[in-house]
Design a protein around this nucleic acid. Sequence first.
DNA 1: CAGGATCCGTGACGATACTG
DNA 2: CAGTATCGTCACGGATCCTG
Lengths: 118, 118
Amino acid sequence: MKKKEVEKIEGCITRLMVIRDAMDVLSGKWKIPIIASLSLKGKMRFMDLIREVDGIAAKMLSKELMSLETNLLIKRTVMNTKPITVEYELTPHGKTLNKIIKEIGDWGVLHRKMIIGK
Amino acid sequence: MKKKEVEKIEGCITRLMVIRDAMDVLSGKWKIPIIASLSLKGKMRFMDLIREVDGIAAKMLSKELMSLETNLLIKRTVMNTKPITVEYELTPHGKTLNKIIKEIGDWGVLHRKMIIGK
DNA sequence: CAGGATCCGTGACGATACTG
DNA sequence: CAGTATCGTCACGGATCCTG
């Protein structure tokens, strides 16, 4: 087998690996919608997210936010107000997801036309 | 409220809606990896996919392929060989996912660097 | 307001064996 | 080879109540 072919095959394998890495961080029902909300609206509080991310329960939101924070995608800021409020926003690294969010949104429009159109 | 502001808010809401539409079709552990494999390698048979999509069980693959076919993303072709073989490939509509796959892959590389780097 | 605690159902996902 | 059948597990996700 030629060197170029080997490289191509290995390229495929690592490509599939990084895709799975990404999906480990992003998969689930809520993570993309949460990130999309923060991406579109910027800084948001817990209650804002409850309202914005349609149908999510507080427990799930809490859990997903923790996961996203652990993966350095969002930043959590506690404000000293009374009662306390908490703000969430995308980190610089979280903002690098914007392209994915955009593509998913664009494709969603396309897909909707496809389904309705037939 | 001005007309432009209304449009912006409605734009956000519908944006989040189409994103959820897209996620309904794409979410889950396996769909993106399956599509990515078909995207990178073109036409594949059931066994090829079992090998390529690392760790998937036959039952899951079968189920996911059905779901993807229902959503018009892949095409299933039964060949009259002995024993029978089946080929799967992306439909034109399925190929419109290439941009998403690319972005996810690119981001996966970035994310890996981010995690290892710290 | 932000969330934790608790209880709970359902389905996603997995391993193995089997069939046309 | 391309699946289906069967059985089992566990975490996703939901509802409700509670607290600093």
